[in-house]
Amino acid sequence: MSTKKQLIVTDTDILKELDCSDPLKFQNRIMRLRKFDDKIINILNAEIPTESFISKGQVNPVNKCNQFKQELRDYYDSRESAIKKCIEYSKNEVDKLKHTPDGTPLYLIKEKNYNVRLYQQELEIDRIDQARTFKAVEERCRAYQ
């Protein structure tokens, strides 16, 4: 039974620790995760070999590319679901405040609505980062398909 070395090494435990009740803490943690996106070219260069290494038969680039793409899909799916969880959490907070019988102050409802928009913006940013990362992977792996 052989286990493949994971090509993408990221701190996915951060996703489990995301605190949806504190938007600033959330943004700081998601920013740490996005540092991976900034390093994607370096990771690709380290993991997917150049022609000289392929000709020596040291690495199978097709397998590496496929593994890399699958790991990226899994990683981004978990990141997206974590952000969507926070969007849902914030929407529920707004609904609770709107339906409190004692009449919640308007500024609290506005604050929670702001949090919903903030998480939705983070989701859009994440989708842009994801598209850019997959474009870099496709360009690098194009020759091996």
Rank of each mutant, 00 (worst) to 15 (best):
P23N: 00
K5G: 03
S90H: 09
L118I: 07
D22L: 03
S2N: 08
K39D: 10
S78W: 03
P49I: 03
K110C: 04
L24C: 07
R127E: 07
S52G: 01
K39E: 10
K96S: 02
E111D: 14
N28Q: 14
A143F: 01
A82I: 02
E51G: 01
V9M: 09
A46E: 15
I109T: 00
G57L: 10
D102L: 12
E88R: 09
T104E: 06
Q120A: 15
K35F: 02
E47N: 04
E71W: 03
Q67R: 12
P23F: 08
V9Q: 06
T12Q: 13
I125S: 10
Q58S: 11
Y144E: 05
N28Y: 13
Q145T: 09
F36G: 02
N113F: 03
Q130Y: 04
K112S: 12
H99N: 11
L106N: 12
E139A: 00
R142G: 03
P23E: 11
R140D: 01
R140T: 03
L123Q: 09
I83E: 06
E111F: 08
L7A: 10
I30L: 15
E111A: 11
R34P: 07
Q27F: 10
N60V: 07
Y75L: 15
D22E: 10
D77L: 08
H99V: 04
R32H: 11
Y75P: 05
S81C: 06
L7I: 15
D74G: 12
S2Y: 08
K69E: 14
L33Y: 01
S52F: 07
N45D: 13
D95L: 09
L123V: 07
E139D: 02
D126L: 15
Q58D: 12
Q6E: 12
K4Y: 12
T10E: 09
L118P: 01
R142D: 05
I109K: 04
V59Q: 05
E17K: 15
D74R: 10
L44Q: 05
L72T: 01
L72A: 03
C141M: 01
R32A: 14
I87T: 13
L33N: 08
R79W: 08
E138A: 07
H99T: 12
L7H: 07
N92P: 00
S78M: 11
C65F: 03
N45L: 11
D11V: 04
S81Q: 15
Y76E: 04
K16S: 14
V62Y: 15
R117E: 11
I125C: 01
L108P: 06
H99C: 00
